[in-house]
Design a protein around this nucleic acid. Sequence first.
DNA 1: CGATAGCTTGATTTCGTTCAAGAGAAGTGG
DNA 2: CCACTTCTCTTGAACGAAATCAAGCTATCG
Lengths: 352, 352
Amino acid sequence: MKNILIIDDHPEIRENIAEILQLAGYATSLAENGKKGLEIAMKEKPSLIICDIMMPELDGYGVLHLLRKNPETEYIPFIFLTAKTERIDFRKGMEMGADDFITKPFDDIELLNAIETRIKKFGILQDRYTPDESGANELMRDLCKGGMLNMDFSQQESEVISKKQFLYSENKRPKYLYYLKRGKIKIYKLNDDGKEYITHLATEGDFIGYLSLLDNKSYDDNAEVLEEAEVILISKDDFLTSVFNDLTIASKFIKLITQNVKDQEERLMNLAYSSLRKRIAKALVIIHAKLNVQKSGEHTIDISRDDIARYVGTATESLIRTLSDFKAEKLIEIKEGKIRILDVDKLNGLLN
Amino acid sequence: MKNILIIDDHPEIRENIAEILQLAGYATSLAENGKKGLEIAMKEKPSLIICDIMMPELDGYGVLHLLRKNPETEYIPFIFLTAKTERIDFRKGMEMGADDFITKPFDDIELLNAIETRIKKFGILQDRYTPDESGANELMRDLCKGGMLNMDFSQQESEVISKKQFLYSENKRPKYLYYLKRGKIKIYKLNDDGKEYITHLATEGDFIGYLSLLDNKSYDDNAEVLEEAEVILISKDDFLTSVFNDLTIASKFIKLITQNVKDQEERLMNLAYSSLRKRIAKALVIIHAKLNVQKSGEHTIDISRDDIARYVGTATESLIRTLSDFKAEKLIEIKEGKIRILDVDKLNGLLN
DNA sequence: CGATAGCTTGATTTCGTTCAAGAGAAGTGG
DNA sequence: CCACTTCTCTTGAACGAAATCAAGCTATCG
């Protein structure tokens, strides 16, 4: 059951709110001043905090400030309760990271609505996202489910794009965010000699093109369908307004894209100093994890040698030679051209 | 002169506001409904818009929505004017991207304050930031200047760190954001064999360590001083609250980090497919632009061969051989070991 | 003044690319 | 449906770019 902490120095108000919330099925904790409220918050980690601004000892701003400083209470939704309707108070509270404001007098519905919205939102956003590029995908999928991203999968029409067709190409202006319902798509850049370098591989459930949208520039890469794909188009505006108008979403995005940068630093170092053998081993594990297709019970990698090579950044022949080596060493198995990984740990732990 | 657009269907209020603003030295445009207001906004691109919510034809929400959809008017500060003090209205407005709310009746000071704050903030944030990693540095510097980041250069004590000392190292927990007042610092990762790959080079005016702070993980790289450095420490909390509690700052950050990702994709492709010659040429240009030291009127690169090699991702000997080639081709000049670039364009335009 | 770090060049080796060619699978069109 | 091209996968041989090993040279520092 959700526990809600109410901090207010007026006993009547405190009791009144507690009663409303209990009727609505919430558990409540009460505190008569900021200091006590803070203690309870630390100990009980409530699901939400309602707090008066004007209080003796430690005022509402102080409570909020201290909560936000502690990583354990940092993300607890916080609603200010205030008699004042003054702009300045309100501004200050928002800038400190309060999630909502309720002005006395308020009615029950208003209070409960505010609480419900916040708890729902928090529930979606507190989930841990895997710390790599796929995290952004998970986040967005959850946002859609929660109705936070302006998008409705069922209503939206989907488009089917066949193999070798382009979802988008270099120098075009991004107009949509793409959600890949089915199929596989490679995203690659071309160097001056026309060689491909695959920066991302997308499978069902992935979102494509958000970086260029956030960047608001023309595409600097190409998205080509590898395996017949069904794609949902989400309007650029819907996506951007969702991200840029909601602090919670924006914060999550910052963290996710930051992770992206870190991942790429890692990839850079590997490209710079790791042997081809090691790079190919890592790529196989990654591709396997990402595109593992369960066909007749077996996990195989179903992407052409050319594309694996372009993902690793090597020549196709070199890739194939290394694959042969791996096969001889019983790290992988090749059946009808399809690669099956036999020993993930050894592949990961390969020396240079 | 700053032009402010006032949209309100009550002539008295319109005139009243216009008068106040004119006295305060602003130019004003007036519109009596949402539709007209929108037209004027498109044509005149005002510095700020004040808009009533309740209006016939097209209400305030509609105006805001349409403005935010158009890239040309997207970032114009927008203040709602409303008689209602209702929470719901207010929420809706904020979520749509309004910058502030003023409730009638208001007094002159309040109005002018709100306007001034917004214009100042906008002025700082609308500047174009160079679309690479240094952009984040510029942004943060500006934020500090504008007092938006909780940090005061004069008050803060600075720390002097000498050559070969570490600012931070792998697996340590980040506690500060660092601002480099003077000196040079290299940030690098180590691969399994203990080889360095330099991911960033920082000079005076650069901020260091924000990625790990945003990420809230341990450092995965090392920062070593190349040339005696004076560093200002900014508390982790101050930095994080500034970023995560202000939607405008958060949005800017998203765009900047996105650019970071894009840059690294580019660097990845170069590492994968470009000849050493080309990669070294590019690195020289970048390092030159970043660390160009003007000593006795000449721009030279003042960083050891070892470090350049580790930035390119190659062996020191290979780097030196290429430098010799460049010297023979009169692309660069070497005086007392220091490299001076003679022909930037040719270095940039090198073929594979 | 010796020692150490940084820079440079030469010789050798290694890893990976490129060129070449064939075998099999998969489209394609008459 | 068959002959055709075309694509994908694979192996061999030769080449080449860059790493490594080695050694000398210069500048700097304690």
